[in-house]
Design a protein around this nucleic acid. Structure first.
Lengths: 117, 117
DNA sequence: CTTCACGGTATCCAATCGGTAACCGGGTCG
DNA sequence: CGACCCGGTTACCGATTGGATACCGTGAAG
């Protein structure tokens, strides 16, 4: 699990190879995982998600918010600080996501084999 | 579950609303579910998947085959009859898919609520 | 006064996705 | 012979996706 979690943020770890996609955009799944351990600021998310442009990160967060998986909290007007955290609904996604991750871990080699031929 | 399964083939049932997507193309998930109960011919798949053009169905099946989830069997040369069935790997997907479906069933109302506002 | 951090936007563009519609070659049925 | 079924393929096209790059307003720090 830990190994896989690390891999997920690498370029080799393919959302492409993975037959499950979470959310509608490419990065939503990773964003959710980054929020697993509590609220994060925009700039904090950009560290593990270095491959994601700020445009795409914003977009992912916006749709996740619209769909009720993430709550955006803004401190100060104008914007001084913003945090994102999973809602209850968002948190409930972690269960099925875990199932999916375990599946992937188990069948990783078969996935790679199939792709090679 | 049964209710949901029926819904999945309707236009309203949104792969769009569902935060999980199986496979890379729009229809892969439904194709897999159509193969759950055993081998099916191309034309048999087209019945439940009436909304899917033959082009897209072929494409889905081809990538599912390439990725090792589906086995294509051709009888006769030239083509007299073709069947598609899940491989072991493909069949193993059904577990996580079930988890995802249960999640969706449970949170369906919340999903709809979130989208409305 | 300048510079930096923060949380984004705006613009442009190439590639991909997916839908429509037409077509196709071989076999079979009447 | 003609029509139809099977399992696709091909061409075309508009919409969507996502990457690159530049930019921006505010407030705090030096």
């Amino acid at each position: 699990m830990e190994a896989l979690r690390a891999d997920m943020f690498e370029e080799i770890c393919p959302s492409t190879l993975l037959p499950f996609r979470i959310g509608q955009d490419k990065w939503a799944g990773l964003v959710i995982r980054c929020l697993e351990d509590g609220p994060r600021r925009f700039s904090e998310l950009r560290v593990p998600l270095a491959r994601v442009s700020s445009k795409m990160l914003t977009q992912s967060l916006r749709t996740l918010e619209r769909d009720g998986f993430v709550r955006r909290t803004q401190y100060g007007e104008p914007v001084r600080r913003v945090t994102y955290e999973l809602t209850e609904l968002g948190r409930s996604l972690l269960g099925p996501m875990r199932a999916v991750c375990e599946w992937t871990e188990t069948h990783w080699d078969e996935l790679l084999d199939a792709r090679e031929s």
